[in-house]
Amino acid sequence: MMNSFSDATRFIQSTDHVLITGHLHPDGDAIGSTLAAAWICKSLGKTVTLANDSHVPDRYLFLPDADQIEPAEEIGRRFQYVLALDCADEARIGKVRHLFSEGVQICNIDHHATNDLYGAVNIVMPNASSTVEILMDWMEELALPLDRTMATFLYTGLLTDTGGFRYSNTSPKVLMQAAKLVSMGIEGHHLADRLLETVSFRELQLLQVALSTLTLSFNGKVAWMVLTQDDFKELHATSDDIGEIVNYARNIEGVDVGILFREESDHFKVSLRSRGLVDVAEVAKCFGGGGHARAAGCSMDEKSMEAVEQQVLHAIYERLGGLPV
């Protein structure tokens, strides 16, 4: 069932303390929406606890209060009321679910088309560019005054989830919202430099390794790369250093789908990007994942990288006409 902003407001007003979380391995929208939602809840007089399954990536730690987002295992209490942001399903909340009390009530605010409406309150808008876009609408309905700090949180989510206002989700509304946020005095060019342009040395090293595995197939419409656990160990790299490496596969002229296959300790992760011929959210959904038509991902429990590649590529080839590799 879909709900209204009024339902979300009543949800927050029904408690004194709210647990706020975004999806595991948080990106700019998950971090920005977590901080923005905390700002809204505090404005409504509520106490908040901010948590995530994963630590906050270094590139976001400059944001005000980003250090207040705690790892789930460091929080020693349980919560009855939870605000889940940018999570297409409850599994994306990860270890934060261990903080839920029996009979937990979840307010689910998200923009993924694959969202399964797992909350008691569901504000899911697949046409929104980002979860922060939805929160900005909610804030305006509440008539809360915008300040520079809140503008920074919102702009972070808009900027990163639209790829610097380059992706197809960059609607006229998004640009008008961005203009309003910039008018609050934030320096959009500095945020773009820190969030989109600056990369770690290890990210470039990982990119070098990934490019050495680059494979092109299906008449040049699919390209993929592979990173193994050994690659990460040799470079002393972490998942924070992956960045948007997958885009290098999709950005090849003539390619529609770019893929990054990544080995983890007990499973494999698959990142998918598309120019539009293939709905990669539907591909990811076949393997328990989700996302958007042009950017999605999943985790797979298989015995080998070869098995993962074979299954994912088969699902993509079917959607491109069913031709073999």
Rank of each mutant, 00 (worst) to 15 (best):
L204T: 14
L204M: 15
Q205A: 12
A210L: 03
A210D: 10
L211P: 01
L211S: 04
S212K: 11
T213C: 01
T215Y: 10
S217I: 03
F218M: 06
G220S: 03
K221G: 03
K221Y: 14
V222M: 09
V222G: 07
A223W: 08
W224K: 11
W224T: 11
M225L: 15
M225H: 10
M225G: 07
L227V: 10
T228S: 00
T228R: 01
Q229Y: 13
Q229N: 05
D230Y: 14
D231M: 03
D231R: 02
F232V: 05
F232D: 06
F232A: 02
K233C: 06
E234I: 13
H236M: 04
H236Q: 15
D240Q: 14
D240E: 15
I242E: 13
G243H: 03
G243S: 14
E244V: 05
I245H: 08
V246Y: 13
V246C: 13
N247D: 07
N247T: 04
R250H: 00
N251M: 09
I252H: 07
G254A: 04
G254F: 01
G254T: 00
V255G: 07
V257E: 03
G258E: 05
L260F: 03
L260A: 05
L260K: 05
L260E: 12
L260S: 14
F261Q: 05
F261M: 06
R262F: 05
E263K: 04
S265L: 03
S265N: 07
D266M: 14
D266F: 12
H267T: 15
F268T: 01
V270K: 03
S271Q: 01
L272Q: 00
R273Q: 11
R275E: 12
R275A: 10
G276T: 01
L277T: 05
L277V: 09
L277H: 02
A281D: 10
A281T: 13
E282P: 07
V283I: 07
A284S: 13
A284N: 09
K285W: 01
K285L: 14
C286E: 14
C286A: 12
C286Q: 13
C286M: 12
F287Q: 09
G288Y: 14
G288N: 09
G289M: 12
G290R: 12
G291S: 07
A293M: 04
R294E: 08
A296N: 15
A296F: 06
A296L: 10
G297Y: 08
C298F: 01
